[in-house]
């Protein structure tokens, strides 16, 4: 039974599909719930704009749903593809693909809900700037989806690159680690980018004249908040494409999984933290636009310091991959 590779590959594909869709549903559901709650609030405040608010809520929720749809796509491919050229290494690759997409959809799903909710509330305050708010919401939530897209890219690569020539033992662990790295690191960045986008929708509804400045600082803040997920993607690529000497020791394998976990978990905190800083800076640019330059500077300095722990995690991950 233990030597029946074809069954084990199926086990990995089905387990990966379950993890992908199960974990991937968490974020989008929370984000859409937040948007719906805010929309109800908004309709209670100004029932006259209920049609606009309802439409905006649905558009916002559709964007937040994207992350879960990515997870569904990966799940369905894992369930129904015939991975017939089954090599023992596919077990790790398929499991890694599921883990990557499952965790990767969490942050973006929650994050995209924030701009949707704040935009609904904004329309109840200032129905006149509806168009502006919709644009702002779409830009903000599209950027928040980026980490989920990174996770999808890594999942596809894990599923469809042929690793059968690589030595089974450290490479299996490397593929599992690659899944953890991008998947976990995407949580923080997705959530953080969403916080910044929410603040920008709130700000441009309160002070419509500052809308352009608010969008710019939102994009800068989101770009920095996105960095930890890019570190995760980088480590995943290194893990997937480095060629390994065959090694039967446990330590060589564990080091590679550990590298993925290190940058994955290590990216969560800085992603959320950078997002919180950006959220506040965006909100205050809306209220006090004359101080835009000093707020932007403070935001970037604050984010850079918060980013340092993600850089430590990347250093340790690279040390685990290359020095051990």
């Amino acid at each position: 039974m233990l030597n029946d590779i074809e069954s084990w590959v199926k086990v990995a594909a089905f387990a990966g599909a379950g993890l992908s869709m199960g974990l991937g549903a968490i974020g989008a559901a929370i984000g859409e719930g937040f948007a719906a709650a805010k929309a109800n609030d908004a309709i209670a405040r100004s029932p006259d704009s209920s049609g606009d608010i309802f439409k905006l809520m649905l558009v916002g929720q559709a964007v937040a749903e994207t992350a879960a749809i990515f997870a569904l796509v990966i799940g369905v491919i894992l369930l129904f593809s015939n991975f017939s050229a089954a090599a023992p290494i596919s077990v790790a690759a398929l499991l890694g693909a599921g883990i990557c997409m499952g965790f990767g959809a969490m942050g973006s799903g929650v994050g995209s809900g924030f701009p949707a909710g704040e935009a609904c509330e904004g329309v109840s305050r200032q129905p006149a700037v509806k168009g502006n708010l919709t644009t702002n919401m779409l830009i903000g939530s599209a950027v928040s989806q980026t980490p989920a897209i990174f996770a999808m890219v890594v999942s596809f690569m894990l599923m469809f690159i042929n690793y059968s020539g690589a030595p089974l033992h450290p490479t299996s662990a490397a593929l599992l680690g690659a899944g953890f790295a991008t998947g976990l690191a995407a949580i923080g960045s997705g959530l953080g980018s969403g916080l910044a986008a929410g603040a920008s929708c709130q700000g441009s509804a309160r002070q419509p004249l500052t809308s352009a400045n608010v969008t710019i600082i939102m994009l800068v803040g989101q770009a920095v908040a996105q960095t930890p997920s890019i570190f995760g993607l980088l480590i995943s690529f290194v893990l997937m494409f480095k060629s390994y000497a065959p090694s039967e020791t446990l330590a060589a394998s564990i080091a590679l999984v550990s590298a993925g976990l290190c940058i994955g978990f290590g990216g969560i905190g800085p992603g959320v933290g950078n997002g919180m800083t950006a959220q506040s800076a965006v909100g205050w640019v809306a209220r006090n636009v004359r101080q835009e330059a000093v707020l932007m500077r403070t935001m970037l300095v604050g984010q850079a310091v918060s980013q340092s722990t993600a850089i430590y995690a990347m250093v340790i991950a690279l040390a685990l991959i290359f020095l051990i």
Binding site: G188, G192, P228, A255, V257, S258, A259, G260, L261, C262, I263, G264, F265, G266, G267, I268, G269, P270, G271, V272, G273, N274, G275, M276, T277, G302, Q303, V305, S306, Q307, T309, A310, Y312, A313, I316, A317, L320
Partner: peptide, 18 residues
């Protein structure tokens, strides 16, 4: 080592962001 640095980075990251 991986878990120490990975989990250990969450707190400072969020805290410094606040």
């Amino acid at each position: 080592a991986g878990l120490a640095m990975g989990l250990g980075a969450i707190g400072p990251g969020v805290g410094e962001g606040m």
